[in-house]
Amino acid sequence: MNLVVQSSEPIAAAHVKPLVALARGGQTHCVDERVLRIADADPAQRPDIEAYCATHALDYAYMPPGQALRDFGLVAMDMDSTLITIECIDEIADFCGLKAEVSAITEASMRGELKNFNESLTARVALLKGLDASALEHVFNERLRLSPGAETMLAAAKAAGLRTLLVSGGFTFFTERLKAQLGLDFTRANTLEIVDGKLTGKVTGEIVNASVKARTVRETCEKLGIPTSRAIALGDGSNDLEMMAEVGLSVAFRAKPVVRAAANVAFNHVGLDGLLRLF
């Protein structure tokens, strides 16, 4: 396998020899100053590589030689804390003075401590009852930011022929605006019920939980005429695990421990454009 080591800063030359030795690898190639590729690396050495990279704030991945981004046909992304830096529901709750309470439920849910996502989401949305819907616009315009490397990653994926899917346990108010802004192909999310300009504290339609996310990935692949093995999924929370298990390459982005442990690749330090440097 190729061992690809990445950093948010230039990789110091002093790291090269220890990494090659730990990887039991062969030829090295500095893709750029922040990326080192080691050929013929032994995946059995993963625990040693994991320990070294964790100590030195490096990200690593074992990748099949010769694999290219264009070998895939779809990149599926979670929204909150993945494509964007915030959890939208937490920021909405801030407008009614309940951010701490809602954030605590969100965190527990994303860590996998709350097994029923539907109940978790329903409880959080109920706390928003009566809030003026203008709060959603404020969150989008004033607080929502793309994660580092997001636009670079999306542009390269599109150039390589991949279609894009934003599939979220969050809300259509945000996914539809991001779809228009970023030129995404497909979106799926929850719809907040709004009556007379105020949130009712309810969502309408089927809740987009872990199994619905996975089903959406499968259905999108069917629509594109590709197997799910030709899809890439990026996520950070436990409700992303099922869709990540469906695909050929799963990437945990600034993710909870349960997600990092299950994913093919974990980016703890680099941006979303780290995906491009794997190939």
Rank of each mutant, 00 (worst) to 15 (best):
T172G: 03
A255M: 04
V16F: 04
D32E: 05
L184R: 06
I86E: 08
N209V: 06
Y62L: 00
V212Y: 13
I232V: 09
A157H: 01
A262W: 01
G197A: 10
G149Q: 13
S229D: 15
L276P: 07
L249D: 05
I86N: 08
L36W: 02
A61F: 00
D185A: 04
S211F: 14
E91G: 10
M79D: 06
K129C: 08
E9A: 05
V16T: 08
E101A: 15
N116L: 02
K256W: 11
I207Q: 12
I92Y: 10
V247C: 11
V203Q: 07
R163I: 05
M243C: 04
S250I: 12
F95C: 11
A76Y: 09
Q6T: 12
H269K: 02
M153H: 07
N190S: 11
R124T: 02
G274R: 13
R188T: 08
A263R: 02
M1K: 04
A76L: 06
A21V: 10
T175C: 00
I84T: 14
A14P: 05
L182W: 10
L19R: 01
P18Q: 10
D32N: 08
E91K: 11
A93E: 05
A93T: 08
S81P: 14
E91S: 11
K179R: 07
D59L: 00
I232L: 12
V167H: 08
V139W: 05
T220Y: 07
